[in-house]
């Protein structure tokens, strides 16, 4: 896997984000590629979520939030007026910190994306897409006999995998995950991490985590944020064994955060 050609999927150049007058992200440049999982780490409040949300324009939903700089998906400026947000979000999916399945059946949760984007012309296609997404999310065997039960009745870990299935059901190119395990127990966390390993290469993945061991386990690239700036960005193995910056070293060795 390490030798796989690094196909750049998203590039962010000099990205700054403001909430009203307050600047939350200061001139950050990062690449997200197909072959690697990119982890965003840093103390809480440093802007990891904010930055992640610029990648699928979820900050558009927050009034007063403003993004500067250039972010490209396959060379296309995602903040250009010609970019359709609805289309963009189908290509750049997102999984949230707290599992947020809709109060609908498991089947309907996964079918939601294909339905609104009109991807499944016939019921048979939809069935196939739901099954394939649930299989990729490693949830199929656990739920195949109760697809009509409510998604909110699953355990926390299953709910989060359902959300991952929901996100990948529309076959996105990029999957963004914002601390997907922070509300889960260790066993459920291990399952999600395993799932991230399996999804790697199929989707470009960016994951926010404040658990350093998790970043080390699941990612190949790591970006360390502090107070809205990108302090260090590079191979995970480098960052964890041989950080260039003093602040990175302090954070990784647990001196603050």
């Amino acid at each position: 896997m390490e030798n796989m050609t690094e196909t750049l999927k998203m590039t962010a150049r000099d990205v700054s984000v403001f909430y009203g007058a307050k600047q939350a992200i200061k001139s950050v440049s990062i690449d997200i590629d197909m072959a690697n999982v990119t982890a965003f780490i840093g103390p809480s409040g440093c802007g990891k979520s904010t930055f992640l949300r610029t990648l699928n324009r979820m900050n558009d939903t927050i009034s007063g939030a403003r993004v500067e700089g250039r972010i490209e998906l396959d060379g296309e400026d995602i903040y250009a007026s010609s970019m359709d947000v609805v289309q963009l979000r189908a290509r750049v999916g997102m999984v949230f910190q707290k599992p947020n399945p809709f109060p609908k059946s498991i089947y309907e949760n996964v079918a939601y994306g294909p339905r609104i984007h009109g991807l499944a012309p016939a019921k048979a296609d939809l069935d196939r897409m739901v099954e394939s997404a649930l299989r990729k999310a490693g949830l199929w065997d656990e739920v195949k006999d109760r697809l009509n039960e409510s998604g909110t009745a699953l355990s926390g870990g299953q709910q989060q995998r359902l959300c991952i299935a929901r996100a990948i059901a529309v076959d996105p190119e990029v999957v963004l995950m914002d601390e997907p395990c922070s509300a889960l127990d260790p066993i459920a966390t291990a399952k999600i991490e395993e799932l991230i390993h399996e999804l790697r290469g199929r989707y470009a993945i960016a994951i926010v985590t404040h658990n350093m061991q998790q970043a080390a386990r699941v990612s190949q690239k790591t970006a360390f944020f502090h107070l809205g700036t990108l302090v260090e960005y590079g191979d995970t193995s480098e960052i964890f064994t041989n950080p260039r910056e003093e602040r990175t070293k302090d954070y990784i060795t647990g001196r603050y955060g």
């Binding site: 609805v86 979000r89 809709f102 994306g113 929901r166």
Partner: peptide, 9 residues
Amino acid sequence: DGSLAMGAT
């Protein structure tokens, strides 16, 4: 957010 992030209007 979950719905908007799926690309729903």
